[in-house]
Design a protein around this nucleic acid. Sequence first.
DNA 1: GTCTATACATCGATAGAC
DNA 2: GTCTATCGATGTATAGAC
Lengths: 216, 216
Amino acid sequence: MVKGVLMEGFTDTEQKIINAATAVFLEKGLDGARMQEIADQAGINKALLHYYFRSKDKLFRTVFQNEIKNLLRTILDSAQSSQNFEQFLQSFITTYMKAIAPRTNLMRFAIWEFGKDNYSIVDTFLQTFREYGYPTNPLVETTQKAIDEGQIRSLDPAHFTLSLLGVCIFPFMIKPFIEKLIPGVNMSDEHFIEQRAKEIYAMIWNGLKPPDQKTG
Amino acid sequence: MVKGVLMEGFTDTEQKIINAATAVFLEKGLDGARMQEIADQAGINKALLHYYFRSKDKLFRTVFQNEIKNLLRTILDSAQSSQNFEQFLQSFITTYMKAIAPRTNLMRFAIWEFGKDNYSIVDTFLQTFREYGYPTNPLVETTQKAIDEGQIRSLDPAHFTLSLLGVCIFPFMIKPFIEKLIPGVNMSDEHFIEQRAKEIYAMIWNGLKPPDQKTG
DNA sequence: GTCTATACATCGATAGAC
DNA sequence: GTCTATCGATGTATAGAC
């Protein structure tokens, strides 16, 4: 969870509960989380959890939607207006990784919960996109526009979006694995992110240049 | 789970249990899985589960290690010997996606379980790598060798490996999300994999060419 | 609103017959 | 080896006092 994110429409006690629930749910998952642990961490008792949020499931959904929206808003808010696609790509990679780096548990968690069909997470995404004026995924639309304008070669915007998200997100999802395998690495470190951003950009951009710009 | 994978050293009943346990664990996770459901799916009763595998946790570890090893062996077995890195890359992408496509639940599952520190999954990986004669990650080593031989430009092999794995794995981890968002897509379809493999290769390779080979 | 005490269900694990 | 029956622990949720 990212500390210091204020939420509107919640009382003081509700806020304490949500903070505690977020920490516990993201670490243990829906099934692994215990209401007692959430109560303890919030400094209250179990009964109060049910008083404010009818059930464990209701509390879970509130927490999850909140975190997803916070993440998307963080990314969309810091999306600087760029003059061209190359500039956009460069800043997007850094922005995106800086947003997910402190949220590795949310990433793991979201991937896991995506597999279930209990409720619609897709709607949470689309709704937040619409808040920012995008009818669907902003990355797909931005990429398509760049193709139409001849800024990049013709390719499938959906596949490119998946690839871009993959290189940015994937390493952080297996963060504990990487840091255990390579003892020296600290993925939360700003330096790691900056260096990785450069590597990603270098790998991707040359594959995007239109033929007449291929200079090496 | 991939059907039809035979395992050595297991009796008939053990095999039935493992098959059932694999299906349930991969879908529900360790915490969400129920011994009763595993027993039902195996066509036996709960007591027998504990007779063969002392505890839920023991059964879980057996299943998980089995699946990881099956996956790694599938990939490493079908790694064709290639004349150069470009050829290797091209076949690797297809091979890798074909191996993980029927294992989307294992991917989700592994990512989730990686976050816990209860037991060492890292060892399972390293051990399987060693079986095939690689002291550490085969991709990192293959990439480093290609750099040393001047087949590709100088880059960080670790970052490149993370990126390559990311573009291959990530889309399949959010498969339900993608197929819900884009109604027409079926990611299990061979055609989708082939098309995506081409897109990934096209994106990556041009960023890897040494300067003197950059023709477009 | 906040607490203690408890109801009620379910789970993992075991005992013991066959 | 395989079954039925059950124990003991723990979980979510609620009742009721303050």
